[in-house]
Write a protein that binds this DNA or RNA. Structure first.
Length: 286
DNA sequence: AAAGTCTGCAACCGCTTTCTT
DNA sequence: CAAGAAAGCGGTTGCAGACTT
């Protein structure tokens, strides 16, 4: 049953490939094609395992590989695809002709990720990093003016702004609130970056006005902290406050995935200011 | 100029999925 | 259908070269 072992691991070479090995592999594949990786090393006269050969070929020796720096367009494409696909490097690579998943992964980790972090954007969620924002000073220096707050729309999640506006409107609680938010945002109590919520998750009141995701974000909000007049607090009215949409979403966009929620789509689109056409089929895309 | 540190990337590791028997 | 190997994939590591002190 099954197949015979792929290779005898003993005596096989590891580490960087030599020019001679590359030549052997390329010449063999040019003649016979990639085919069976298990038998390829032996047939090609290489002291490597098939896995190593496959990796070397797909990531480096393939003739259609585009070497050199990523263009601006490629970089933007990677960011956009990553916002939808996450760390599905092979799926992203499939959209970038000539680039390998390994190359994209490396480029993401060494360049794009750092650039996003520097811009205050969480590279995992593609949302602004609240722990890098001094909300207290923002709100205080702006005298908690709604118009000033709205100027931050391009930086902050609109729902956060709604919250900040709401909180700020209660001047008697403002100082405590801001202190608490600062403490909360900077000293952890926020989830780590890897578990940061997507924009639609920042505040997720359910139909009853309760915070749905209890793991997150609003330790400063009702109940036990006593910071807000929780009995009078009404999320529905708070969230229905008039706010212009900073990142317009094409309301006719089709769901990216049949299993996705409306919120998911909004999250993806609003975060990156790109629209998903109606004809888009997520399954096909993958 | 030497030593230490940082950065980028090729390659490996280990897990999951797909395929073959 | 089950077992097990191959292939695929994403995370991590190690090292060479660049940069800083």
């Amino acid at each position: 049953m099954g197949r015979s072992p792929c290779c005898d691991k003993n005596g096989l070479k590891k580490g960087p490939w030599t020019q001679e090995e590359d030549t052997k592999l390329v010449e063999y594949i040019q003649i016979r094609g990639p085919g069976n990786w298990r038998t390829l090393p032996t047939n090609a006269g290489l002291q490597r395992c098939g896995k190593s050969c496959r990796l070397r070929w797909t990531n480096y020796l393939r003739p259609d590989i585009k070497r050199g720096r990523f263009s601006f367009e490629e970089e933007e494409t990677i960011v956009q695809l990553h916002s939808v696909l996450g760390n599905k490097w092979s799926a992203i690579a499939a959209r970038l002709p000539g680039r390998t998943d390994n190359e994209i992964k490396n480029y993401w980790n060494t360049h794009i990720r750092k650039r996003l972090l520097k811009s205050g954007i969480d590279p995992v969620t593609h949302s602004p990093r609240l722990d890098h924002l001094d909300l207290s000073s923002i709100l205080n220096s702006a005298q908690v003016s709604l118009s000033n707050l709205l100027n931050f729309q391009t930086l902050l999640n609109p729902e956060i702004l709604k919250l900040a506006t709401l909180l700020a409107s209660s001047s008697s609680n403002q100082e405590n609130l801001m202190n608490h938010m600062d403490q909360t945002l900077t000293n952890h109590q926020l989830p780590s970056c890897t578990s940061m919520p997507t924009s639609s998750q920042y505040l997720s009141p359910n139909m009853n006005g309760q915070i749905v995701d209890e793991t997150l974000m609003l330790p400063c909000l009702p109940d036990n902290h006593g910071m807000l007049p929780s009995q009078n607090f009404n999320f529905d009215s708070a969230l229905s406050m008039p706010m212009s949409s900073p990142m317009p979403l094409n309301s006719s966009s089709t769901l990216v995935n049949s299993s996705s929620t409306e919120d998911d789509r909004e999250t993806y689109c609003s975060m990156f200011k790109f629209e998903i056409p109606e004809s888009f089929e997520f399954d096909d895309f993958i």
